[in-house]
Design a protein around this nucleic acid. Sequence first.
RNA 1: GCCGGAGUGGCGGAACGGUAGACGCAGGGGAUUUAAAAUCCCUCGCCGAAAGGCAUGCGGGUUCGAAUCCCGCCUCCGGCACCA
Length: 831
Amino acid sequence: MSQETRTPDYDPATLEPHWQQRWAEEGLYHSDVESARPKFYALTMLPYPSGDLHIGHWYAVTPSDARARFERMRGANVLFPLGFDSFGLPAENAAIQRNIHPREWTTKNMERMRGQIRSMGTMIDWRREIASSDPEYYRWTQWLFLQLLAGGLAYRKHAAVDWCPSCNTTLAREQVVGEDRRCERCGTLVTRKELEQWFFRTTRYAEELLDFSAIDWPERVRTLQTNWIGRSEGARIRFAPAGRAQDTEPVEVFTTRPDTLWGATFLVLAPEHPAVAALTSAERRDEVTAYVEGARRQSDVQREAADREKTGVATGGHVVNPATGEQIPVWIADYVLPGYGTGAIMAVPAHDQRDFEFARKYGLEIRPVIRPAGGEALAAAQMEEAYVGPGELADSGELTGTPTTESVRRTGEWLAARGTGESAVTYRLRDWLVSRQRYWGAPIPVVHCPACGIVPVPEDELPVRLPEDVEWRPTGESPLKLHPTWRKVDCPRCGGPGERDTDTMDTFVDSSWYHLRYLSPHYDDGPFDPAEYRYWMPVDTYTGGIEHATMHLIYTRFFHKALRDLGITQGDEPMLRLRNQGIILGEDSEKMSKSRGNVVAPDALVARYGADTVRAYLMFFARWEQGAPWSPDGIEGAARWLRRVWTLLLEGRQATQDSGGAPQAGEATRRALRRKVHQTIAQVTQDFERFQFNTVISALMELANEMSRATADGAAGSSEWMEAESVYLRLLAPVAPHLAEELWHRLELGDSVHRQSWPEADPEAAAEDEITLVVQVNGKVRDRLVVPADVSREEAETRARASEGARKFTEGLTVRKVVYVPGRLVNIVAT
RNA sequence: GCCGGAGUGGCGGAACGGUAGACGCAGGGGAUUUAAAAUCCCUCGCCGAAAGGCAUGCGGGUUCGAAUCCCGCCUCCGGCACCA
């Protein structure tokens, strides 16, 4: 046997670390402000340093990286940073279990994860890394808190707040999930606690947050946010107290059906409503007090179970229905929630099912005031449920006869003219509770002074550092409160003895602005360098999981708008385009978890196949936005593909050299190769733009197959082959950066492939010169003809009608019509 | 209950209203090999010997032509839910 030149093996284990090191040394992925080039800010959600990198991290980061690389090769100056969301409860909980300091646990995890992320071969600019638990970072989280405070957007109030007894801290409304109200983090049933807490005024931005017109975000996220904000249009109506209480303030209700006012036969207050005491008569006092006490003791789960039978008690007090002038009784009932609307409703039992049930149970009047469309007037005694359909107003004074299509508007005008009410909008959204009674977070930078009240810590004293020597075990009190000295400070205003706020901030505050700190992570004069901001912001593409739809993704929009109003940021939205990746489930189609033992460890995959294969497979194995159960066999396909590319290009180069520039392949083969090359450029470009990574890979696989056929036909050595090589490696570079780089160098194509520009598709080269013309009879495929691409209509129709398939199926029929779709088909309509 | 999203081969999935199932996995057959791995070639929706027929959750409709558009259902996933 003769000694052949053997193609070396594809060995990612050596070439990947080699290139990673080279790129780092050269600073290949440093992104700096460069006004000459268009910027592109590609952001991916920052990970929590939980210790071990999960395949889900790879799924979030590597396709995002590929897309950032694509933008870079297209000529943009791309910023693709990463950091760590390193404050938070898991660090504290882990630290408690292992008896090490949260900082130590977090630092170790970040080190480990940094190494793992580096193995992905991303274009992350590590100079811009941030960690939210860094004093250099949280100094500015605190500074931003103070700006919100000064701007009236942060405030303190005493309220019943959601409390997780396991995490021993308060939770934001968004962190309470499910029908039975569990802690978003640990799943424990949430209870209520009365506490004085810090809030951010998210509700002030409710209306603006509903407007998505300036951003390209997925429909799914937009609806989740829209539902979460929960806008209701209706009216506020004031009911003046009657009898003994007539000198007290009117009771205001919110209703979406002001047009049913004439049917309001009683009023219901939430047990917590401030007017309860004034409206309660002496003889009802004991019963009312007992009911209020009972409601307070009940858990929210019990109270808010919709299927529970309604209970309530009469207060003995009355108010005047402003429409009818009649006195109607006032009740209290726990189906009216203190936190929504005004905490009081007008009950219209004839037209609201809840009120109907309540009225039937307690024998209250049911008075129909809507005549159903095209039907008989309703009779209260015969009704079995509330009528909520369309119709016209009945027994409604001067508005009688108004159709329900305009009755809400006209009642609003009627009320406004009398000064007893007006149109109003209510939101479900609550203000964001940001205080946490835990150690591992950014301390709230205020001092409580007995003389001056709440005093902000002066800017030049920031950051308010976390003390290191603290008992961080949770007791329900903030650990900072238990520190012997930390909280004792002089009041910055009067110099008298004061006390630091001992709560820390919700970690969602940290992550609401991290994209700004990446711009200048070590900037000392503000949260970010304005010059960097002007160049890089807003974020062009934001990628991450959908689970943050009603948390982080609302908070960060709120934060940006609030900072805009404080003159700190510009523009209305922080992130222009959002795309969410799906979830990779375990092989058993269940959520991956250590306890189920179905966790896929990326390190093992990288060790076995190399990072490029893992990247390619993650982009290929499912629709990115959908996710799928992990399939261990599929990755072999991606590995095979990259190995084939390796041998194809190296053997192709050998054959090129052997040919001495005289390819054996004929013109047709070479033209076909060039056509496929340019078709692939167009396809891959379009699919990258749309985040359709799976078809990027399949297009590249197809081109490799075509190139494989072309070399078999002797295309190596031709100019078409050389073009194919160069294009292939550039299209591959975002997906498999190490392999593409290695081959780029082995083929001696020049400097780093990652500095090359994205190839451009030549439509002329991509055009087919022959097409398959489909012949249909009555819409069914009956024949296929190969014709020149520029075939004339007449020619196409004639040949189609003469085709065997067409003749066979039109025999004995009359041709009524012929539809011709150029380049595709001829449809013969015959009967 | 309300609001979204999704239903296409054994599997992941392709498909500007125009050849349904690209690309890949798994399966079947073969080549190479002492053997295996790796690699390469062929095959692969269902029924049918073939001609052909049937197929994109179900039922209608629009259209020359529907996975794609419209109407009505069913199932799964997610969110919200006594929100006045």
